[in-house]
Design a protein around this nucleic acid. Structure first.
Lengths: 195, 195
DNA sequence: TGCATAAACGAACGGTCGTGCTATTATTCG
DNA sequence: CGAATAATAGCACGACCGTTCGTTTATGCA
């Protein structure tokens, strides 16, 4: 890896840390340059615009999410175990991956009404995730772990809601019971899917 | 109502519209002044800082939420009907109240890791809402509509998650089934609470 | 109607931002 | 090693920001 690619990684890592605190829109090239110890123009040269920097930061965090959450789940056995792994990793990701929580989910709320390439990227990413999640649930049905008439999309919808409720309780309210509540709700979801 | 209070209302209304699009942090006094057709300094004089403007905007949207969502629910009969009214009004609020969706929920995601008065206000407001919601559920238990051993906090947790999942699907993904999925999930929640 | 006061304005400030340029330094490779 | 190329720095620009201040205009009450 050349020198350029190396500093790009440094920059993007710092960008994700900053974006998790201040939001993707709060990213500033000046502040970022200061944080990594280089000049504004030197940093700017790596990306040709701020928007490009935002997009590359998003791409990187999406890759990290797949690596830390989705791929481990896909290595677990189909059905409940796979979804449990996904849920576990997802909560841990929201808790530990970045100081300010998941950048993608924060950006999704921030840009859900701001047209442009950033929003487009987010929509694509979230659709992918929704599909992946749907496939996991469907595999559980076809494997016999879940009821034949289970509403796959509904299951995915509720599971996503649990993750979001977890983040809301843990990040904003600092509710120590957030994880317990989320896990209990997941059990309820499984009970309904099996019965 | 004097002239001052009148223009304050105009300003705050426009502020909520802008904040629903660009986030609370994206509020700009200059842009706001332009939107309502007055000078920056004239507008600024009404609030003594940008943070004060943000706080007053939040207070106003919280009042509106109580008026349009919470109060109608409290007028409905205890138990399921009350919670159904709350849910109905809440979805409608997220869909219709502002062009960019609920300002409070967006700000909660935006400021969940930004210490300061704005975050403090959001925490207080969301705690209040959580308590109110918990009381509604508890009233249903005590009224005999729900199981004696129902986890009140868990019910509230899941209901909040449904609203957030609804917003994610409707606002970001433009999923036309968002409302259907949310309502189906609410029925599941009620089924579990009754049985 | 006249006057105290509130409301709004215009200009300016220091600051930060994203973004071009040009020059200089560091890296890579024949 | 030396030349080609990549990476970084320095500097300036125009735009926009929140905020302050002195002035002017509008309001509302005696």
């Amino acid at each position: 890896m050349g020198k350029g690619a190396q500093t790009r990684e440094t920059i993007l890592d710092e960008a994700l840390r900053a974006a998790s605190r201040d939001g993707l829109g709060g990213l500033s090239i000046a502040g970022l340059a200061d944080a990594v110890g280089m000049s504004k123009s030197g940093l700017f040269a790596h990306f040709r615009s701020k928007e490009q920097l935002q997009l590359e930061a998003l791409q990187r965090v999406a890759d990290l999410f797949v690596e830390h959450v989705v791929r481990p789940a896909l290595k677990s056995p189909r059905g409940e175990p796979r979804l449990r792994t996904l849920f576990d990793r997802w909560l841990a990701w929201d808790r530990d991956a970045f100081p300010g929580g998941c950048v993608i989910q924060a950006a999704s709320a921030e840009f859900d009404d701001v047209p442009g390439p950033v929003r487009d990227f987010l929509v694509d990413t979230q659709r992918d995730l929704k599909d992946t999640l749907g496939n996991m649930v469907r595999a559980g049905v076809e494997h016999g772990a879940f009821r034949k008439d289970l509403d796959v999309e509904g299951f995915a919808f509720e599971l996503l809601g649990l993750v979001q409720a977890y983040r809301h309780h843990a990040r904003l309210l600092h509710d120590p019971r957030a994880e317990t509540l989320a896990r209990a709700a997941l059990e309820r979801l499984f009970n309904h899917a099996r019965a």
